[in-house]
Design a protein around this nucleic acid. Sequence first.
DNA 1: ACAGAATTTGCACACGCGTGCATTACGCAG
DNA 2: CTGCGTAATGCACGCGTGTGCAAATTCTGT
Lengths: 350, 350
Amino acid sequence: MFNAVGIMMDQSGGKSFVNAKQVAELAGVSRSAVSRAFTPGASISEEKRRRIVMAAEQLGYHVNHLARGLMGVPSGIVCIVVSELDTPYQSRLVRRLVEQLQAEGRIAVVLAASVAASSLQAALTRALNYRAEATVVLSGSPSQSIVRTCVESGQRLLLINRDDRMEGTYNLRTDNEMAARTALHAFLRAGCRRLAVVTSQARTPSLVAREEAFRAAADGEGLDVRVWAQGPTGYASGLAGAKALLAGRDRPDAVFCVTDLLACGFMDGARQSFGLRVPQEICVIGFDDIDQAEWEAYRLTTFRPPLDEMVRQVVDLVVMPNGSLDVSRESLLEPTFVWRSSVRPAHAEA
Amino acid sequence: MFNAVGIMMDQSGGKSFVNAKQVAELAGVSRSAVSRAFTPGASISEEKRRRIVMAAEQLGYHVNHLARGLMGVPSGIVCIVVSELDTPYQSRLVRRLVEQLQAEGRIAVVLAASVAASSLQAALTRALNYRAEATVVLSGSPSQSIVRTCVESGQRLLLINRDDRMEGTYNLRTDNEMAARTALHAFLRAGCRRLAVVTSQARTPSLVAREEAFRAAADGEGLDVRVWAQGPTGYASGLAGAKALLAGRDRPDAVFCVTDLLACGFMDGARQSFGLRVPQEICVIGFDDIDQAEWEAYRLTTFRPPLDEMVRQVVDLVVMPNGSLDVSRESLLEPTFVWRSSVRPAHAEA
DNA sequence: ACAGAATTTGCACACGCGTGCATTACGCAG
DNA sequence: CTGCGTAATGCACGCGTGTGCAAATTCTGT
């Protein structure tokens, strides 16, 4: 029944977990003492705690967080819902979130919202089943009903980069409108007049906001904007966009790509298929400041979302106790304009 | 105390969770009935189940998986330990794993092993605390002691791409040796003779294996190999490697980069700083087949790990019941050689 | 040495759930 | 109507833990 180190075997041949009672028996103390030994701030003598910890180590005992979460104690579980984890921007954000949440003693459950349409619903249900303290949604449109379920259950729902504000959720978004205006003015100062936007078929709120703000700003200057919006939000669409936009006469001399991946694809297309030089013959601005934007092959002028600040706010909202957090249900973060070499400097006008 | 839909408020103002007892009261049945209503195959009349489900929906009731996991029922939690989630290769692998595990009804907890050296130890401890069914390690070297603890607790430990096999773990790795030999022969057929390897300071087992296998294969042909190994495993190191290796006289004409990111950096360095053309003047081979390897700017010849097969085997090992899984504690997967444009074809010898 | 304060300890309960077991209700043939 | 087999139901227990409360122990000051 017991092996050399005292691990109990169950009938199926696998090993079962050691519980506090067994540790108590080995250490010759009550089970409560074991519980207190692993509870910071509990009243227990140092000598007894040492003996208990030693016994626990010998048996391979670990506090069962499931049972702990059964009581009033918060579970420490935070869900992160993400659809395209293999994207440079998303993966970086998730990494930072996981690290910081972990530093705060939380544990991050990553849920994929990509498989089916109802998958997010199922994922959030699972999150509820595990008594997650909060859920961070990086993508997908949660249905109104599931959101209500979450909020009513005391779940905090943090929506990142989604412009559709909903009742009872905390919204974090970057200032897409400001970025679009900044991009336009950078183009104008570089002497560009034939504007274009490259975006994707996916009507993600952030991307739509960037496109529309850019068009509105250009409209304010009396300038026209050609728009290319096809395929998914990735490199391939940018490449295809270049081939489409640059094929005809009167090709654009300034292109705002709503995503860095689109921008990389566009630049490659402009160079390979049309022999254009960036920024001499065509200027490009992206958004996200992914790693590749800094690569020598691109040196892309783009907007860097304030990742540190975003992560900090998310972690704060998660960690914050239940009282007094309704103060700011929404916050708008300013991206930084990162000037590299894909736009002509102002003084070098045509 | 109760609001319109019957959600109980706790004293702190947040909502507390609904339990089976409350559902039972509303539906006018016993608590056991509620439990059975949500247990597939339990003995309960269809009419009563409908009434219970309706009451549960009205109250926003969700089965508490923590309490369920308290009993013999497996927790359904799988831990994924990863150090560099914002890397193209890792993020893609994690995404696939999360999706497939989710499809099998498991929930994936992502643990960051990057912060501190002892962080992996802490991560595995947390995994044990939550009674994870299995832990998939994509990086870092777990200490022998913590591995024993995991295995003795019935945790399955799956190590991916780590050559150090340990007692009681399941190992999945790709055939780095074969890949290195294939790369060498591709270089030789292209007429290259001045070989080099670009790797990083990190002594990750896979990377070391690729480097050493390449050197061994070259040695078998009587050829020398210059090695550059500095900095982390990323684009910047590849760029620096190019500047260092190509600066002197007698520059290499074939470079095996142990990672695609290194290869991208190297290609950019070779082009920007030395005006070299790939593959006419220098051939490059990478490893991982990340998205960027297919980009027009690189069109990198590289090795594609069999991701589908890897994920399938991991999921199989996780899902498999406790009996009869010691059959294959290790499996070696063959990467595919992806031929693009960064190596001269065989017939175009110098 | 002794009272009183301060600390430590153990008992017992609660948390939310699944389930074995005894009991009841039901359907059906004789 | 009776007997019997089957489906449905409710009671009570156990899972592993944290904690209030009272009892027990140690410490402190005079």
